[in-house]
Write a protein that binds this DNA or RNA. Structure first.
Lengths: 194, 194
DNA sequence: CTCACTCCCTAACGCTCGTTAGCCTCGCAC
DNA sequence: GTGCGAGGCTAACGAGCGTTAGGGAGTGAG
């Protein structure tokens, strides 16, 4: 899961270009020729660094999940071990939103382009994505144990609502309108009762 | 916005096939040949009924928004004019989820495939989509006026969280797990305070 | 100096895409 | 029964796709 998993020989800017195209145009419109053009080389040269388009895409998708995973974990760790669940949830939301909306084409790609990936590529991404989901399962569970979630509400529903809301944010967020801190605060407010 | 907007000569099953493909595979993978194969004709014959792939796609997208719009409006109307905002919100959520998850490939397509449509097609869909958003703006505002939304929370954030959560449901919903009534009830619970 | 290796190139492969042209065959109107 | 439009068809177009073959320039090691 560390950066070392990527072959050192793979130029970062090829991955960057792929991430940018995937996040803005989706899988099919992200052509090898378009990626190559973005880094001012020819399409065939891509294959010197990567075995196939799908291997490149899979690398970007997994990198995207890794980035948001690490961002959320780092933000939670910075809170210290005794932070209240309310604050932990708001912090996780903010970190996820920052990663996918501001910092990382990789994260944006891993969220937006995933749905229509070829099955083979999707299969390569499943494990890391599940691992990321576990963070949220944990946060919601903590909050529930602390009595912050209205009793009777399914914790799965809470988690899926939250992840849905933050993952969909890429479809409407534009810098300069609702700012990310406000979104994170309000989203967190909504899932806690009285 | 009525069905009469579609030329009467366009066989419904061509639209159906396009909606099914769009919702499951996305825009680029929805080829004219694949649509034709689904209705057991050849690709060229599609053009006897529709001027272009994009015109066909745009028709499906707008039909999808119309269907969910009508479904939500009908469900709200069935409640009668004096229903409480809490119930109205839950009802709208349930109608939206039923439309996109159970009843309509059109609605599923209009939600899932929209992001990566060509700009020209997206432009043709904007008006109807905005009109649908207005329903939600109204529901959230009612709830807020009734004092059901925690003060200090942006109503835009509430609306966007709700729409994000329900629109993303297509990415994880599988029949037989969390059922739609439960999801709708829990989602509604979460946005209301004490 | 030379060998090997890296990194890029041109050219082309087989395939699929959206779309068009032109033809055939029904079934209904007159 | 003749004409014609509706609704299919085959064949093909130019373009773009992912990918491969093979070559050439630069560079660092021996």
């Amino acid at each position: 899961m560390t950066a070392a998993r990527l072959p050192a020989t793979v130029p970062r800017h090829i991955l960057d270009a792929t991430a940018a195209l995937l996040s803005h145009r989706g899988y099919e419109a992200t052509t090898v020729r378009a990626i190559a053009a973005r880094v001012s080389i020819k399409a065939a040269s891509i294959y010197h660094h990567y075995a196939s388009k799908d291997a490149l895409v899979a690398a970007v998708m997994n990198e995207g999940v890794r980035i948001v995973h690490d961002a959320v974990m780092a933000a939670l760790a910075a809170l210290g071990p005794v932070a209240c669940p309310r604050l932990r949830l708001e912090t996780a939301i903010r970190a996820h939103l920052r990663s996918s909306l501001e910092n990382s084409d990789y994260t944006a790609a891993s969220i937006r382009a995933f749905a229509f990936l070829p099955d083979a590529v999707r299969a390569e991404c499943r494990a890391d994505r599940r691992r990321y989901e576990q963070i949220w399962r944990g946060i919601v569970e903590e909050a529930s144990r602390a009595g912050l979630i209205r009793p009777g509400v399914s914790l799965d529903a809470v988690r899926l609502m939250l992840l849905g809301a933050v993952n969909w944010a890429g479809e409407w967020y534009r810098p300069g309108r609702l700012d990310i801190d406000t979104i994170a605060r309000d989203f967190a407010s909504l899932v806690f009762h009285g």
